[in-house]
Design a protein around this nucleic acid. Structure first.
Lengths: 126, 126
DNA sequence: AGACTATTGATAATGACTTATCAAAATTGC
DNA sequence: GCAATTTTGATAAGTCATTATCAATAGTCT
């Protein structure tokens, strides 16, 4: 019989942590979140699972300037991110400036863009 | 007598490479550029000099999503960057979208922002 | 030029993040 | 439950960019 991928509470906890978060999570944040459900979860399992979730297209990486990547569920509509310099959390931001492409020099083909806002989030600002 | 910083052809070549480039350079690109003038320049000297140029405020780091930092002369007016996925060079872009702050959620204080366009540069597109 | 000492270049070491290893534990099919 | 095989967790190892080390080199001052 053929081998198949097994369902484990670790993978489910990791999947859930990412899906239930309202913001992109770092591997460590995924670990912290998933440990709420699986006490002794290891960071290696988080990285392994992130890799397979990326491969199957369930999650996508969020690259930020000068930061290690975060991970969020795939298939979200176009959006950007905000990083709080106090708590270092990254938040999802709806909305996107118009006419971004026209600031590129003549002859440059713009295929995508990344916008990151920096500052202090509502929780840290109070 | 007090010790002072000496003028060396290495430091001058590194400084020149950064100033004369029309775009932010990676440490390796700085090395490549400066070697046009100093044949046996070492990468360690580039890093050392970048560090001191940063400390004295002559150059500033350019952080990009998922990329090691580039360096450009300090004191430029506000601008953004374009990264070519073909040659991996980063270009400076004038112009900035308006009203960026208003896409942040209520209560979030926006202090700065980074915008990166991705695509193919004019040279690679031809 | 000569002495003093900062600087350089080659490379080993570091640090942060990610991946590999492998014995023990857990899941699946029977 | 049992056998077969995948998965896990702890941690060693690997990666890549950057920094430290140190003997040799080269500015600077007299």
């Amino acid at each position: 019989m053929r081998r198949m991928e097994r369902k484990t509470i670790q993978r489910q906890a990791i999947r859930d942590a990412i899906i239930e978060a309202s913001r992109p999570l770092s591997p460590q944040e995924v670990l912290d979140g998933a440990r709420g459900h699986v006490k002794n979860l290891g960071i290696a399992t988080v990285y392994r699972t992130l890799k397979s979730l990326l491969a199957e297209g369930a999650v996508q990486a969020v690259d930020l300037p000068g930061e290690p990547p975060r991970y969020e569920p795939a298939g979200k509509h176009h959006h950007h991110h905000f990083r709080c310099r106090a708590c270092n959390k990254v938040y999802e931001i709806d909305g996107c400036p118009k006419n971004l492409k026209r600031i590129a020099p003549r002859g440059f083909r713009v295929e995508s863009h990344d916008l990151t806002l920096f500052g202090v989030c509502a929780r840290c600002a109070t």
